[in-house]
Structures are given as structure tokens and as C-alpha cells.
Deep mutational scan, measured.
Amino acid sequence: LVRYRTISKIPQITLNFVDLKGDPFLASPTSDREIIAPKIKERTHNVTEKVTQVLSLGADVLPEYKLQAPRIHRWTILHYSPFKAVWDWLILLLVIYTAVFTPYSAAFLLKETEEGPPATECGYACQPLAVVDLIVDIMFIVDILINFRTTYVNANEEVVSHPGRIAVHYFKGWFLIDMVAAIPFDLLIFGSGSEELIGLLKTARLLRLVRVARKLDRYSEYGAAVLFLLMCTFALIAHWLACIWYAIGNMEQPHMDSRIGWLHNLGDQIGKPYNSSGLGGPSIKDKYVTALYFTFSSLTSVGFGNVSPNTNSEKIFSICVMLIGSLMYASIFGNVSAIIQRLYSGTARYHTQMLRVREFIRFHQIPNPLRQRLEEYFQHAWSYTNGIDMNAVLKGFPECLQADICLHLNRSLLQHCKPFRGATKGCLRALAMKFKTTHAPPGDTLVHAGDLLTALYFISRGSIEILRGDVVVAILGKNDIFGEPLNLYARPGKSNGDVRALTYCDLHKIHR
């Protein structure tokens, strides 16, 4: 019993810090008490220290592992850092350059016999395009090294910054494609005289377009951006097909006994025919423009016929181009109408809503002055909100995010209106959640004399007048207030005048 009563005193000691020596009952000389009392004092002292730490809000209350900052290894790049964003855009520009100039170089340097010394005699450094290609190869190699040090988000939505895990993730992902696209074939085969082989191998750079397509997928929600990307894709495919079309004609031209190829026909049409040795002929500019003209006309199913396939190889390629053109029509131009419709969806919704308003007016036989006010209010409210119901949009977000959005939407009023000066951010967040926005066209009466005042109004834009009878008592403008002081009276009061809008007004109100 003594032991039980001794232990039962522990909660009292913990909360009230009572010393055991003052209790005459606990001072009985028993061996059990002498053993338990020192333990009680020690526990009391420890609990006292913990309570003191909690009340003082000291940093040592938290466990040590929670006080440590997340460790980022040296030379690790955050995937959302500004440097990584700028670097990704730079790589994107280099990939676009590669997609345009690599097929052009591979096709127009394929057994090209233009006048001038061969590239091997001039030297590697004197070729501007080769120098640019070398810079692109170096940048792609540097990009691989950067990807080995860039964080990523795993399946659990955690940012991984450990170098080993980053390397394994990159090896399992895009490393092989990036490595093949970054191989400097110019340096590996330079001086061997195989410019045709170098041009063909350099087309491996186009593998990076797969990554670019995935990154550009984030802009699919913007109709104008999608339309622009589709047109660029169409032009890029036409450019690639033009390079292939020229390569076919250029390879067949020296081996044909009869002059029936499209390059021969082009030379005869523009007065620059090929001679018996295969030299001469149109310039590279004429060849490229004509090839691009043929691919565009074939892809769009126009086909004027002034550039036509004559050999079997050219006919087979033309059939493939027609098939590609039909697929592009289905996948690209078939979506253009939907994209344009999405661009004008706001206008369509406006006309639909206006039609419903006019049908309501016609069905209920609203008189002319009231009908005009109804239409003007709808037009003004639509121009202010673009038909978007803010309350319906915010309803799907958590309250903390709703408060931040409301604070942002009402920031101008909260910053410049005098009653809100000096208020804490928590108070402003709470008030912003209570605001209701209303609009009024010129001549609209917001409050009639004798109406119950259940709200306090803040003028965000425009001006109003307060009338008693036919006498203008006051004219209020931006950041002015009218209405009933909230919670100042037990019952809502009545208006002693009319409140009429002089201009288009936007008002925020808080109800009782």
C-alpha cells in the first residue's frame, strides 16, 4: 500500500512540481520508500527539464536528425535550378540546329562534286560548318556529364541527390541515346576521305529529338503553341524528305545512260545542264529549293507536275512521300480545326451564355430598361472574369491554397485601402477568403433606401454616388468604403439613402 501511494504521487509531482519531503505519510521509514524516492526525484528532475525545454521552444527539443539540413553532394545540380533551365534551352537550340543542318550536310555532301578544292585539302579548321559541328559534339558530351550530376524525382516524389543513384537512373534511361548522339564521328573518321560515311553517321544526332519531343509535351495545353509546333514538325519532315529526294537524284545521276532524272530535267529547265562528264548542272541553292518544293507539294497532295519522278527509285520514294503525307494530314492537320476551336472556345461560351440571357429575357418578357441593365451587367461581368467562376475553380483546392490565391487576387485593395494598413498577414488572409466580388454598370442602383444592410462594401474600381431623395450626399471612388460596420450592432440596419454607380464599378463586399 505504501508503495502504491508513493507511485500514485508521481503525476502530481510531474505537473505541480511538489516535493515529496513535505508529505508526512511518505516520510515513514520503510525500505521500499527509501529505494523508490531517489528514482522519483530523478524522474521528476528529468520531466521538469523536458517541460522547461518545451515551454522555452528551444531548438534542442527536436531530434538531432530533424535539425540537420538535407545534404547535397558537391557538384550536384538541382533539376529545378536556373542554371539547369538555361542549359536545357541551350541544348534545345543545338538539337534544332542539328535537326536542320545534319540531314542537309549528309545529303548535299554525298558524292558532291561542286567546283573547288576537296575538304581534305583545305583542312578541318577552315570549314565553318565542321567547326560548328565540333562545338555541338562537345556541348552534347558536356550535357552527358551534367546529367550524371543532376537530381531527379523518383516514384515516391522524392528528390534524389545521391550521385550513385543518379548515375544508375541515367544509365537506365537516356544515357545510350545521348551517348550515340554525342559521338564525334568527324574526329574519329577525319582524314579518311569518307565524307559520305561521316554525313550518314552524323544523322545519329537526330535521336535527341525524342527527348525534345517529350520536353515539349508540357506545352500541349496551349493551343497556339501546339499549332506552332505542328507546323514546325511538318516543315521539318518536309526538309528531311527534300534532303533524301536530292540524295536519290544525286546518286543516280552519274550512272544513268539517259538523262531522265529530276536533276537533269531541272538543269535543262533553268539552262544549267550537266555536261557529258557529269559536272556542271544547277547550283546547290536551286537543287535544295526545288527538292523542298517537290516534297511540300507531295505532302499537301497538290502535285503540280513541273517536278516529277521519272526513275524507279524516284517513283518509289514519291509513293512513300504520299503515304507520309496522308498520315500527316490525319495526325496534324486533322487537329488544326480542334485547336482553332479551342482557341476561340471563350468567344463561343460568351455567345452561348448571351443567347441564354436573351432567351430568358424573351421568355419572361423583361421590360426594355431592365433588359438593357441585365445585358450590360452580363457584358461587364464577362469582360472582368472571362466567364470563369472563381468560386467553382477554387473549390477543388485546399483552404490554405485558397487563402493564398484570394490574398493575391485582392492584393491591390488590401495594400491601398486604409482600414487594412497594419493588419497582420493572417488577418488579411482571413479577410480575403470572405470577400465576394460584384460588378455594376453605370446607372445601376446597388442599394435602395430602406434596404437591409448586411454587408460592408469596398470599391475596387469606378465611382458611385450616394443620394437622399434627389440630393447627392457624397461621391465615392476607388478604395472608399460604404455599408454597415460589421458586428457593431446586434441587428442589421437599414439604408438611409440610395447608392448608384456612376461608372463601371468593381466592388468587394463582406457579409455579416
Rank of each mutant, 00 (worst) to 15 (best):
L201Y: 01
E112I: 07
P103R: 01
H73L: 05
D444W: 08
T347Y: 07
P70G: 14
N410R: 11
F294K: 01
T300D: 01
R205D: 01
R71N: 07
M139T: 05
K84G: 01
L299D: 01
L94H: 03
A348R: 11
I189E: 12
L279S: 13
W174H: 03
E252K: 03
R356Q: 03
W245Q: 01
I260G: 06
L109T: 07
L343H: 05
T437Q: 09
Y274T: 01
F333Q: 05
Y384R: 11
S345R: 06
L216R: 04
H73M: 04
R356A: 09
G164R: 14
G443H: 06
L401C: 03
M433R: 11
D268W: 10
E196C: 10
A106D: 01
I248Y: 01
E64T: 04
I270C: 01
S258I: 07
Q127F: 11
P419C: 12
E157T: 11
T150A: 03
R356S: 15
A125F: 15
A119W: 01
K285G: 04
Q415A: 10
G116R: 15
L129F: 08
L414Y: 10
C417T: 12
R342C: 04
H408N: 03
I260A: 03
R211K: 07
I144F: 01
F296Q: 01
K84E: 01
I260C: 03
P369M: 03
H380E: 07
I237H: 01
A432E: 03
I260R: 05
G123I: 05
E158R: 11
Y329M: 08
M322D: 01
G280D: 03
V159R: 03
C427L: 08
I138Y: 04
A107K: 01
S105V: 05
Q269N: 03
R218V: 05
H169I: 04
T385P: 04
Y288K: 01
L134G: 03
G325S: 01
M251F: 09
H448L: 06
L93T: 05
P82L: 08
M231N: 01
G325L: 01
F234A: 03
S345Q: 13
Y384M: 05
K215S: 08
T438S: 11
L374G: 03
P419Y: 15
K395W: 03
T150K: 01
S313M: 14
R371H: 04
R211I: 01
D133N: 12
M256R: 12
L431V: 06
R211W: 01
T113G: 14
Q253S: 11
L292D: 01
D88Y: 01
G396F: 03
T424Q: 13
P128N: 03
T290N: 01
A181D: 01
I96L: 07
L414V: 07
D217Y: 06
Q372P: 01
L327S: 02
G267F: 04
L230E: 04
V100C: 01
W174S: 05
